[in-house]
Amino acid sequence: MKSTKTIILFTIIIMLLSCDKRKDFFEELNEAPVVLLNSRDNVGSNHAAYTTEVLDSFKLSNGTYILNILSTDESTGSKLSAYINPTGPYILNQSPPIINGENEEIAAQILFTPTVIGTYIYNVKVVDKFNIESEATAKIEVFNNLPPVSPSLIITPDPLLNIYEHKFNASACYDRDAKYGGKVVKYNWQVDANYNVETEFNIIKYIFPWPGSYVVRVRCQDNDGAWSPFISKTFIVI
């Protein structure tokens, strides 16, 4: 009886050792998981395709920055985590894992709404069931709205109805952060102290009342409400 118990105990020990060796065998064959990022859902994104390193700029007034995450691993049971420096509130939305071919995939998103400008660094980590980990990073420069620019003002005669009628052209105005959704939405036209109008048109017609010297000014406003400096031109009507 004692001999039988010894044999059973010995068999159990052999099985446990075999399991450990089997685990070590699979662990040696295991490859590190992969985690990739893209920022394609943001206006002006530099990274529409997945990569391990995102370098991006983001305009503060655009609201929420979205970072897409994709993790793949040949084994199941991987876990995602993320943190941001400097520390700030963010939301990590993670979809249930799916099997794609021979790999497990986890899709996720980080939603971050900055309240101040500055540099923010995301570190995203995936750890598989063998505690092998991989990381991807995103460096985001958050900046304030850039006001538009009025580089030139062109005045040309247009005497169709009146010999003193002229055309004012400020079509060269542009918004410096157009890549990030900025655009010019309004123009403020002034002629001496006699004319002051705001309009959506970058080209207007104006009839000078009589010959003389006039100061014509124009500035433009972007969709964040910021105005460019005035550009002025002294124009002589003969």
Rank of each mutant, 00 (worst) to 15 (best):
N68G: 10
T64G: 00
A172C: 02
A170R: 01
F208E: 01
I236H: 10
T4L: 10
S150F: 01
N103A: 06
E200S: 11
Y214A: 01
E31A: 07
A226M: 12
C19S: 14
K179F: 02
L153S: 04
D56L: 09
W210K: 14
F10V: 09
F26E: 13
S232R: 05
H166Y: 15
Y180C: 03
E135Q: 12
P86S: 06
T11M: 09
A138K: 08
W210H: 13
L146W: 13
K183M: 08
L67V: 08
P33M: 04
T113Q: 10
K139P: 00
S152L: 04
V116R: 10
N144G: 07
Y122D: 07
I203K: 07
D56C: 03
V43R: 13
V215E: 07
I91H: 13
Y83G: 03
C173Q: 05
A172K: 09
N194W: 00
L60G: 04
N131E: 11
K21W: 12
A170T: 02
N131D: 11
V197L: 06
N38E: 07
A138S: 10
G101A: 11
A82L: 10
K23D: 11
K23P: 01
Q94E: 15
K186P: 00
G77K: 09
K23S: 12
V126T: 15
T51P: 12
E200G: 08
S171M: 06
F130L: 01
I91R: 11
V215M: 09
N162C: 11
N85Q: 14
V218H: 06
G181Q: 05
N188W: 11
N62Y: 08
A136K: 02
K186T: 10
N169T: 01
I14E: 00
S45A: 06
S18R: 00
F235E: 06
N131M: 12
A170Q: 03
T234E: 15
Y90D: 07
F58H: 01
N145M: 03
L70K: 15
V215K: 09
G225V: 07
W189M: 02
N93W: 13
N123V: 14
Y164L: 11
E102R: 04
K125E: 13
Y50K: 06
T64A: 03
V237T: 05
K205D: 04
S3F: 10
N85F: 14
I121N: 15
A49K: 01
P89T: 14
N62G: 10
A48G: 10
N196Q: 05
L37E: 08
L37V: 12
Y164G: 00
N46W: 04
S95L: 11
I155D: 03
I12D: 00
N62P: 07
I117K: 10
K139Y: 08
S71E: 09
T72V: 06
W189G: 01
A138Q: 04
Y180H: 04
V215Q: 12
H166W: 15
S213H: 11
